[in-house]
Simulated scan of single mutants.
Amino acid sequence: MVVLALAAAMLMQLTVVNVLPLPGGAAPDLVLLVVITAAMVRGAGRGALIGFCSGLAADLTPPVIHPAGQYALVYCLVGFMAGRLSERSPRLGVAVAVACVVAGPLIAAGVAALIGDERATWAALQTALPLTIVFTLLAAPVVVWCVRRMLGERPVREVRVAAVPVRGRT
């Protein structure tokens, strides 16, 4: 099911999201959201593996404008981080997802700057990076809900237990 979710996200990213006329030329990263959600459900080890495989697929899918392996590294790190954080504090799912959505583009920008990508300039980061984060956060509720449902995870509902009066000794 993870492969199906990633394939759907990649197809939507390439055919719909990337051609939307959004401000600043930025777009939400649906593949990143699928990686984060799958890692939160499956754990750190599988999250890193899912991130690596999906990043490698994104690296090799045309149009390629970056070195192969760049997004494999980024998604692998984000998948591991999402899985590890959700394992350590499972009740903070929303905070973990938001932290990973913010960390993903920041890690991608850092990796791009480290490998000498000409597009990783300070001016480009100031305009495109915040918009990418905002658009990804706006898309997150729908994508996370769909992927969690595809992976078979149901929302946890609190069970309220009625208070039973305890009689004291007389």
Rank of each mutant, 00 (worst) to 15 (best):
I133S: 09
A128M: 14
L125R: 00
A103L: 06
S86E: 05
Q126N: 10
P21H: 01
R149M: 08
I36F: 01
L4S: 05
P63A: 13
V3N: 09
L138V: 08
M40N: 09
A123M: 14
R42Q: 10
G45T: 13
M10F: 12
V166W: 06
I65P: 11
R148A: 04
T61V: 10
L137Y: 04
P23E: 13
V2M: 02
V147F: 01
G47F: 05
M1N: 02
L22H: 03
V96L: 11
A58W: 15
V143S: 06
R149F: 08
G45V: 13
P62A: 03
G45A: 15
Q13R: 05
S86M: 12
L77K: 04
Q126Y: 11
T37R: 03
C100F: 05
H66K: 15
L137D: 02
V16H: 02
M10W: 11
A72F: 06
A7F: 08
P23L: 13
T37N: 02
R91S: 14
L20K: 04
V3T: 09
V96Q: 10
P63N: 10
A123Y: 09
A72R: 05
R169W: 12
A44K: 11
L14S: 11
Q126L: 15
G116M: 12
R84T: 07
A82Y: 08
L114A: 15
C100P: 01
Q70H: 15
G93A: 14
L125H: 03
P130V: 10
Y71E: 08
R167W: 14
L33H: 05
G79N: 07
I50G: 07
V111C: 09
Q126A: 15
A139R: 06
A68Q: 06
P62F: 09
A68E: 11
A140F: 04
A9E: 05
D29A: 12
A39S: 14
L106M: 10
M150I: 10
N18D: 11
Q126I: 15
V19F: 15
T121N: 09
A124M: 15
A120F: 13
I65L: 14
T121Q: 11
A26D: 05
P165V: 14
I107T: 10
G25E: 02
A27M: 12
L22A: 07
A124L: 07
V74G: 04
A27F: 09
T15G: 08
V64E: 14
G43Q: 10
E158N: 06
G93R: 11
V98H: 08
L77W: 06
V31P: 07
W122T: 10
V34R: 02
P63H: 11
R42T: 04
Q70T: 15
E158F: 15
A39R: 08
P155M: 03
P21F: 00
A162T: 04
V134E: 00
V94Q: 14
L73D: 06
L125C: 09
M81R: 03
S86G: 04
M81G: 00
C100T: 01
V94M: 14
A140W: 00
A113I: 02
T136R: 03
V134N: 05
A120T: 06
T127F: 09
P23I: 03
P155N: 04
A99L: 10
V101S: 03
M12I: 14
E118V: 15
V74C: 04
R84Y: 12
M10L: 14
G79Q: 09
